[in-house]
Simulated assay, not measured.
Amino acid sequence: MDSGAWCARDISMRAQKKFLSRVGGSASARALVLDDHAAKLLDQFLCVLRSRVEKREAEKMVKHVIKAAVKLGVLRRHSQLSPADDRALAAFRTKFHTVLMAVVSFSEVDFSYDREFLQDALRESHQSLKSVVERHLSDKSVSRLAGVFALVSRADLLDSLFADKIDEDVLKLTRMLRKELDRGLL
């Protein structure tokens, strides 16, 4: 009986991940799995990306972020993450928090932009997350996340965001990030 329950649980989890991978990009699916704050941040991030990369590529990157977050949420909900995975995710959160704080400071403090620092912080964040994702998600999901981090680490993209005068879309995104960081939600 235990092995049957285990199989049913495993099948249920795989079905949820598969379902979410199919609908992860639609607005209705985002509403089911993202809170309002996260959805607004991702929408603003998409707006910033669309003005700097091809529209389809920008949308695909945001969709990949959503899918990965949802899949990791499903794994956590079903207690599939080991203590080592939880530590790696905590390390990711800490490192990504550093990335977000740097992004906010680059927009708030003139002449503070440091591309190498941001690229290193993004690389470290990716490595922490990758260690968990590789054990639990498909190679395709791992590749998608690598693509997201490769895009946001591109020198030309980062320079367009912070090297010169910062445009209104980027300022709006960083103000949103600052608010969420101040509230302790990121």
Rank of each mutant, 00 (worst) to 15 (best):
Asp2Val: 12
Asp2His: 11
Ser3Gly: 02
Ala5Asn: 11
Ala5His: 07
Arg14Gln: 12
Ala15Phe: 09
Gln16Thr: 12
Gln16Cys: 14
Lys18Gln: 11
Arg22Tyr: 04
Gly25Val: 03
Ser26Gly: 15
Ser28Phe: 12
Ala29Asn: 00
Leu32Cys: 09
Leu34Asn: 14
Leu34Glu: 14
Lys40Tyr: 15
Lys40Gln: 14
Leu42Phe: 14
Leu42Cys: 10
Asp43Leu: 04
Gln44Glu: 11
Phe45Ser: 14
Phe45Trp: 12
Cys47Met: 12
Val48Tyr: 03
Leu49Ile: 08
Ser51Ala: 11
Arg52Val: 07
Val53Gln: 05
Arg56Gln: 09
Glu59Arg: 13
Lys60Leu: 04
Met61Cys: 15
Val65Ser: 00
Ile66Lys: 01
Ala68Asn: 02
Leu75Trp: 02
His78Gly: 02
Gln80Arg: 15
Pro83Ile: 14
Asp85Val: 02
Ala88Asn: 12
Ala88Met: 13
Phe92Trp: 06
Lys95Tyr: 07
His97Asn: 14
Met101Cys: 00
Val103Leu: 10
Ser112Phe: 14
Arg115Asp: 01
Phe117Tyr: 13
Leu122Tyr: 10
Glu124Asn: 06
His126Trp: 14
Leu129Ser: 01
Leu129Phe: 02
Val132Glu: 02
Val133Glu: 00
Glu134Lys: 05
Glu134Thr: 00
Arg135Ala: 06
Ser138Asn: 03
Ser138Trp: 00
Lys140Thr: 01
Val142Gln: 09
Ser143Met: 00
Arg144Cys: 07
Ala146Arg: 06
Val148Tyr: 06
Leu151Thr: 01
Asp156Gly: 09
Asp156Arg: 10
Leu157Gly: 00
Leu157Gln: 01
Leu158Lys: 05
Phe162Cys: 08
Ala163Ile: 12
Lys165Asn: 10
Glu168Gln: 07
Leu171Phe: 14
Leu171Asp: 15
Lys172Thr: 15
Leu173Asn: 02
Arg175Met: 07
